[in-house]
């Protein structure tokens, strides 16, 4: 009965330790991936447009489609403040053009989803007393993982294709 012994038993899905192990592995991975993600998307650096670049991009928009011109006229697309760095479609497209960045972003997506939703299953399990309801909560969390993973992977893989 090898399944009753050792790692297989400790990390079976029934004991909840499989979720713990996955959260720990993805947690260590996320230290790197979320750190990198926050650095390139929220801190001022070359992955974002500078204020001058962004305002130049906006001027180009007005000529592209009436949709853009309308949004700018209504203030729904605003000029950058002096010194502001802005995430913009062109920069994201440029970065996601390389397979390495696609891989990094999809890994980040899957790690974050697994870590977050398995954590959510753990939290829900703390407050749900009924065993079958707890099972429903775990299935719900996995459904959210699958749904959002699909949404995210489609976004990353299809960006710039239309």
């Amino acid at each position: 009965m090898s399944s009753e012994h050792g790692l297989q038993r400790i990390y079976s899905s029934r004991s909840g330790q499989l979720g713990w192990l996955m959260r720990r592995i993805t947690g260590v991975g996320l230290l790197f991936f979320v750190g990198l993600h926050f650095w390139i998307q929220h801190m001022p650096n070359g992955f974002l447009a500078t204020a001058e670049e962004y305002n130049e991009i906006i001027k180009g928009f007005e000529k592209i489609t009436p949709e853009f011109a309308d949004a700018i006229a209504k203030g729904k697309i605003r000029e950058a403040l002096p010194g502001e760095h802005v995430i913009t479609y062109d920069k994201v497209l440029e970065r996601l053009h390389t397979p390495l960045w696609k891989t990094v972003d999809i890994t980040l997506l899957l790690f974050a989803l697994l870590h977050g939703m398995l954590g959510m299953a753990n939290v829900l399990g703390d407050y749900i007393q009924n065993a079958s309801l707890r099972k429903v909560a775990v299935i719900f969390c996995w459904a959210v993982i699958l749904f959002l993973a699909t949404q995210g992977i489609v976004t990353v893989m299809t960006v710039g294709t239309n």
Partner: peptide, 17 residues
């Protein structure tokens, strides 16, 4: 993740940002 689906359309993404 749901918001970033706007990356499918440049105008929608700039509005989102």
């Amino acid at each position: 993740i749901m918001g970033l689906r706007s990356l499918g359309d440049p105008a929608a993404f700039e509005l989102y940002i």
